[in-house]
Amino acid sequence: MNIDVNLLMRLMDTLGPSGREQEVRLIIMKEIKKYVDTMEVDKFGNLICHKKGKGSKVMLSAHMDEVGLMVNEIKGNGRIRFSAIGGIKPVSLVGQACDILTRHGVVKGVITFKELHDDLDSKEAPVLDDLYVDTGLFKNDLEKLGVEIGNYVVPVHYTRFLGSRNIISGKALDDRVGCFVLIELAKLMQKTKQNIYYTFTVQEEIGLYGAQTSVYNINPDWAVAVEVTNCPDSEESPQVKLGWGPVITIKDAEIIANKCLNDHFVEVARKNKIPVQLEVTESGTTDASKIMLAKGGIPSTVISTAIRNIHSTISIASLEDIKNSITLLAEGLKNAPKVCIV
């Protein structure tokens, strides 16, 4: 299978923290419009692309937003404190180059903390309150440049291949991989008869809000959140490994996924010899947990690509896993179940 790796890299390098997904949305709209019948941006900012067809209404959801930071205090000495948008480990921010997005343009800075700046010993990993952005300027100069409370701060990092052309690393793999999978899937499903809603949601990282509003209008028969999941394969016996195929969620921190859908995708994987991994995790949740509880209840599951260093600028994924996620979904949709009651 050929995939447009340049598109994936462009999606990853585009800035789109929760609440500021417009640039990502524009790229997706441009790429997917040839393969769907209608596109709509709802009042909340979600992009809903419909490929009309027969049979059950299927919602496939991937979120456009990424974790980020927001200015919440500018000290007189120019140190800029920030609040986290989503679940970021503070230690992953230390030493990052970053851009502050102001009304007048970008102000460049670096993320540091006192012990590093003053050459002091630090025995513990810094917490978020320890960190600040240093631009080299004082408060008065920053204010003239438009730096103010509420500005987004985004770590700057460009996507690149690591050990081989199969291993990609960069920021926002969560969930630009999901967005990319849906675009590539739309290409594959263009001439099929399925009734599919490709849904690109906003504000997932701060509370799954885009999924909560978009599912209401779509009212699907069943749904799949197309996601990434944490891959802690530095452990001795990891449940999920990089390069071992897409991950089907059985249970995450908040939901038990629909068993009928999971059985369907496991069977599809077996028949088509697609490697899959099953996951029971405590480490987070996805849009599926909001979709599942909408209306009278929507059977839902999660198909993820395993990534290392989730929610950081050094996330790592295998392109082979991404290709297998696309194939699994494509094959799964060809003979999609009509009803998924457990």
């Binding site: 989503g86 701060i206 996601e227 921190a253 949740t285 996805t286 929610h311």
Partner: peptide, 11 residues
Amino acid sequence: MLRRFALFKQE
């Protein structure tokens, strides 16, 4: 993926 740990405020 939403990781809720950082959404809780400091004790």
